[in-house]
């Protein structure tokens, strides 16, 4: 599956790496990832490492070996639930969770996975809600997510039972709350995008 590391990086890998360094420059100590000693504390602390195809420690090892594109294609970065266990335990002070966010943004920006990739599709649906209403509307989030990934999921008794249960208890809004300041929200989004988004 994986080819040996080339002596010189391919142009695509080089471009992705440059974009990655730009991303990690946006938080303090972002470049500390260079100080990784491969101790595995991150992987040992990660509650979802068992479900990853590349463990957190291996992400750094593969990055060093020139396989950033493989990392961006992995499901690992989207399995990360941002619990920060690795970040607070890393003996080298590496901002692991923030680095994974940087990888997610890079993968999203480069469009390096199918549109129906679950965690990414959920993020897209979530962002879409903010663009439409300024707030998250949970019912619409669920509908949009299932429609864009696996529409048959909506027919699942588990999903329907969950929705009904919340509705009965008044814990699912049937209408969105649209904020009054949508003009401000749109102006912020437009401006941030014009500034490159980093």
């Amino acid at each position: 599956m994986m080819t040996p590391a080339p002596v010189a990086l391919g142009s695509k890998e080089a471009e992705l790496r440059a974009a990655f360094w730009d991303q990690v420059a946006t938080f303090p100590n972002g470049s500390k990832i260079r100080d990784c000693i491969q101790c595995g504390t991150c992987t040992g602390s990660c509650p979802v490492a068992h479900a990853m195809d590349i463990s957190p420690r291996e992400l750094v090892a593969l990055f060093r070996a020139g396989f950033l594109e493989d990392i961006l294609r992995s499901r690992s970065i989207w399995i990360c639930a941002s619990c920060y266990a690795c970040t607070v335990r890393c003996p080298q002070g590496i901002r692991v969770t923030d680095s994974v966010y940087a990888l997610k943004r890079l993968a999203a920006k480069k469009g390096i996975f199918p549109k129906t990739f679950p965690a990414h599709a959920l993020s897209e649906a979530f962002v879409g809600n903010i663009h439409s209403f300024g707030r998250n509307w949970e019912l619409w989030l669920g509908l949009k997510y299932y429609l864009s990934t696996h529409p048959t999921g909506l027919l699942s008794p588990n999903v329907q039972k969950f929705a009904l249960r919340m509705l009965r208890r008044g814990r699912l809004a049937i209408r969105p709350t649209r904020i009054r300041g949508m003009k401000e929200v749109r102006a912020i989004i437009k401006k941030a995008q014009s500034m490159g988004g980093l």
């Binding site: 946006t26 997610k104 943004r105 993020s123 962002v127 904020i179 941030a192």
Partner: peptide, 15 residues
């Protein structure tokens, strides 16, 4: 408005 939770920061940090 919504804080964006773990989702928006996964897509575009400045926004």
């Amino acid at each position: 408005n919504c804080c964006g939770a773990t989702s928006y920061i996964s897509m575009n940090k400045l926004t």
